[in-house]
Design a protein around this nucleic acid. Structure first.
Lengths: 237, 237
DNA sequence: CGCCCCATTGAAGGGTTTCAATTATCGTGG
DNA sequence: CCACGATAATTGAAACCCTTCAATGGGGCG
């Protein structure tokens, strides 16, 4: 079981852009077709490596190729507050167009490959290429739409519903990119999930156990198999 | 006290665009300067009037001139789930660029004046006018930034912190537009606030009473005077 | 003025957190 | 490859916060 799960989203191997599963929505690839090789593609960051420090001037967009990132803030008492997770296909930096600087810290949860695009070159293309401009508008608009849905769900009181939605949303994000497997790897720790959802690790743990008893999930450490997707979606209504 | 509060953001009178307090950030005004009078400006909606039904094809952006709107969804059991509130200066429809249809219902909380801009004319200007395009990019980016901040706060567990932030965020939104008064009118009911924050009206009520005892707020129905802004911001840490 | 709706306040119940202990997992070095 | 320590995850019991249910109080509108 463990081996099967692990193979689903392994990031131990490197693939070319042409073979990349994300190519249909891959901005770097699209850019390479219009303006050759201006992008530093598929740079590798190690687990726990920091990509972005909050407050730094906005320089690059980051597009996740494989792996996972977390964005977070650090309070005075050194406690972390996680703002969100970035999975393959996600783009980091859209919120910085306005503020001109990075608004959150971003760190790699596992070994992660990202494509980096300079802001100036990105905006140059927005000006020149109408098709690209439309794509960017859609990306921005879609981001807003997704955040609205997120807020809707996190305003929910019950912890069960929150965690169920969290798991489903990860599944859903992979599914949008053609990975229809019901096997999911949680790149983040229980502590990260708890922090993000405004719950405690104990509550996360208890609910996962409960979902397992109810035959909704099969939990093996960081690997989750969704046995009953409908039940997961409708849990906590 | 009551009269003072009421005068702060009264929407019982109509003002010209040139005198409008929002003109520095007013898109319709900006549009009128570049492309004359393509906008149906300052249309009035009555309290409880529905501006948008979810699922309708995306046609117009709405910019709030005065008053307030709420966006919400209706579940199978007819229960409402509020997604957000729109205050003067806010723009409705940014999330629909991607989906091509309206994603939420939108209703007036009080008598509300809005400026309407056709999507097609809006995008025409994006193509033609570079300055306007930059403005729109900033609007979209800023929206994402604000949603991120919102999520950060709604992941907070404690009800006190949520409500404090909610009140502060309303103050903050008015402040961004030059209304620095510590008097706030809550256009929405306690039930709407509770629904939005994922709490109950009783909890909202109790916390407001507590904030009053602590000399942080002065609550008079829908009118709130912030006696201690610092204490409000730092409450519930 | 009285009705109705909204807001406030009180007491009991349920869910989540906190504190504490145990078990499992990962990384490291032997 | 196994052993070991450190870190992460699970599980249990008590405390606390928020909700639920119920009753009272107040403000707006006809």
């Amino acid at each position: 079981m463990r081996e099967i799960s692990k193979s689903i989203r392994s990031n131990s191997y490197s693939i070319s852009c042409e073979l990349c599963s994300l190519s249909p929505i891959c901005i770097p690839l699209m850019l390479n077709h219009t303006a050759n090789s201006i992008i530093e593609c598929k740079r590798l960051y190690a687990k726990d490596e920091v990509l972005i420090n909050k407050g730094e001037p906005f320089a690059n967009f980051y597009i996740i190729n494989s792996g996972a990132l977390k964005s977070y803030e650090v309070a005075q008492d050194n406690s972390e507050q996680i703002n969100g997770f970035y999975l393959p296909g996600d783009i980091v930096g859209l919120d910085s167009i306005y503020t001109k600087k990075y608004n959150k810290n971003v760190k790699a949860l596992t070994n992660t490959k990202v494509c980096e695009i300079h802001y100036s070159e990105f905006m140059l293309l927005v000006d020149k290429n109408r098709k690209f401009r439309d794509l960017v508008f859609h990306l921005l608009s879609n981001d807003i739409y997704n955040y609205q849905k997120l807020i809707l769900f996190y305003s929910q009181k019950r912890a069960e519903a929150r965690l169920a939605f969290f798991i489903y949303s990860i599944y859903s994000r992979y599914e949008q990119q053609g990975h229809t497997s019901l096997n999911i790897k949680l790149s983040m720790s229980r502590a990260d999930i708890a922090n993000y959802l405004g719950l405690t690790i104990e509550t996360i743990s208890r609910i996962l156990s409960k979902f397992q008893e109810q035959q909704i999930l099969l939990v093996t450490g960081k690997y989750i198999f969704i046995k009953d997707l409908d039940a997961l979606v409708s849990s906590g209504e």
